[in-house]
C-alpha cells in the first residue's frame, strides 16, 4: 500500500494514557478494600488485596514503559511531550504510593488500626480515593478536548482539575486531623510511628493526583 500519510501516524499515546488511568482507578479500589480489611478484625484477605495491587502496579508500569518506549524522538503530540511524560509520571506515582502504603501496613500484619483512629483512617482513605477516580475522567475529557478544541470542553477539564485540587486540600485536612489524633493517643511508640508514616504515605497519594491535575492544566493551556 502506498498511502501518502498513513505511515506518519503512530499509535496514539493517549489510548495508553487512558488505559493507565483506568489501572490506577482499579488500584485505588483494591487499596480501599485492603485498607478496610486491615482495619477489620480477623480479615484474612488483606494479603490477597495487596497482591492484587502489586499486580495492577506491574500492569500500569508495563503500560507506562510501553508509552515511553514507543515514542520515537521525532514524534509530535498535540501537547508538549515533556508535560505529557511528567503527567504520566505523576499518574504512575499514585499507584506507587498506593502500593507503598499497603506494604507499610503489611510490616505489622496483625496489629490493625487502633479503635480511636479507625474512623479517621477510613475518612483519609476515602479522601484520597476520590481524586484518583477523577483522574481517569479527566484524561477522558481532555482527549475529547484535544479532538474538538471546544472551549466548553476545555472548561469541563479545568473544572475537574479544580475539583481534584479541592479534594487534595480536603485530604490534607483529614490527614492533619489524623496526626493530631495519633499524638493525643496514649499508645506504644511503634504504633505511633506506624500510624504517622501510614498517614504520610496515604496523604501523598492525593498529592500525586493533584500534581497530575496541575500538569494536565499545563497540557491544555492555550
Amino acid at each position: 500500500m502506498r498511502i501518502p500519510f498513513f505511515s506518519m501516524f503512530t499509535r496514539s499515546p493517549f489510548d495508553d494514557l487512558q488505559k493507565h488511568a483506568e489501572k490506577v482507578k482499579e488500584c485505588a479500589w483494591a487499596f480501599q478494600q485492603a485498607a478496610e480489611c486491615y482495619a477489620a478484625v480477623n480479615c484474612e484477605v488483606f494479603e490477597d488485596h495487596r497482591q492484587q495491587v502489586i499486580r495492577l502496579e506491574h500492569e500500569a508500569d508495563d503500560i507506562k514503559r510501553g508509552i515511553r518506549n514507543h515514542m520515537p524522538k521525532n514524534v509530535m503530540l498535540p501537547v508538549e511531550k515533556f508535560q505529557f511524560f511528567r503527567y504520566l509520571r505523576e499518574q504512575d506515582s499514585v499507584v506507587d504510593s498506593v502500593q507503598e502504603a499497603l506494604n507499610w501496613l503489611s510490616y505489622r500484619p496483625d496489629s490493625g488500626i487502633p479503635d480511636a483512629l479507625e474512623r479517621d483512617f477510613f475518612l483519609l482513605v476515602d479522601a484520597v480515593v476520590d481524586p484518583i477516580e477523577e483522574l481517569s475522567r479527566m484524561v477522558e475529557e481532555a482527549r475529547v478536548y484535544l479532538k474538538t478544541f471546544s472551549d466548553k470542553q476545555r472548561e469541563d477539564v479545568k473544572s475537574i482539575i479544580k475539583n481534584i485540587r479541592q479534594m487534595e486540600h480536603d485530604a490534607d485536612q483529614v490527614e492533619r486531623a489524623f496526626f493530631r489524633k495519633v499524638m493525643e493517643m496514649e499508645s506504644d511508640p511503634i504504633t505511633v510511628i506506624h500510624m504517622i508514616k501510614l498517614a504520610e504515605i496515604v496523604g501523598s497519594i492525593a498529592d500525586h493526583a493533584e500534581n497530575a491535575g496541575d500538569m494536565m492544566r499545563a497540557m491544555i493551556a492555550r
Binding site: 501516524f9 520515537p72 521525532n74 514524534v75
Partner: peptide, 13 residues
C-alpha cells in the same frame, strides 16, 4: 500536526 491537530505525527518518517 504542527497546529496540534493530530494525536501523534511521526516526523522521523
Amino acid at each position: 500536526g504542527l497546529a496540534r491537530g493530530i494525536d501523534t505525527v511521526n516526523f522521523g518518517i
